[in-house]
């Protein structure tokens, strides 16, 4: 399956879910007062958000919408 066929919709969803999970981990790490909270945030939360952002940027680069030819055809 090529990158184009996967579609922008799927890319946005995967990216969105990864970032939301990362944000939930960040929220939990901020509430949890423990030395491991930073480790959790840095290695799990920030990594998930970073990956989600990369997926989104990849969707901009690899998935291009078909151009609409606005010129008149008559």
């Amino acid at each position: 399956m090529s990158l184009r066929t996967i579609g922008l919709r799927r890319y946005l969803q995967v990216s969105g879910i990864l970032i939301i999970l990362g944000l939930v981990v960040e929220l939990f790490s901020l509430i949890w007062f423990h030395p491991l909270a930073f480790v959790l945030f840095a290695f799990l939360g920030a990594s998930m958000m970073g990956l989600g952002m990369i997926v989104y940027l990849a969707s901009i680069v690899f998935i291009s919408e078909p151009r609409v030819d606005r010129r008149s055809t008559n």
Binding site: S15, G16, F41, G45, M49, M53
Partner: peptide, 14 residues
């Protein structure tokens, strides 16, 4: 939503 705000959240979290 998918780049600027998450980057800001990471920076603010750090």
């Amino acid at each position: 939503a998918l780049f600027l705000l998450p980057a800001l959240c990471v920076a603010a979290g750090v």
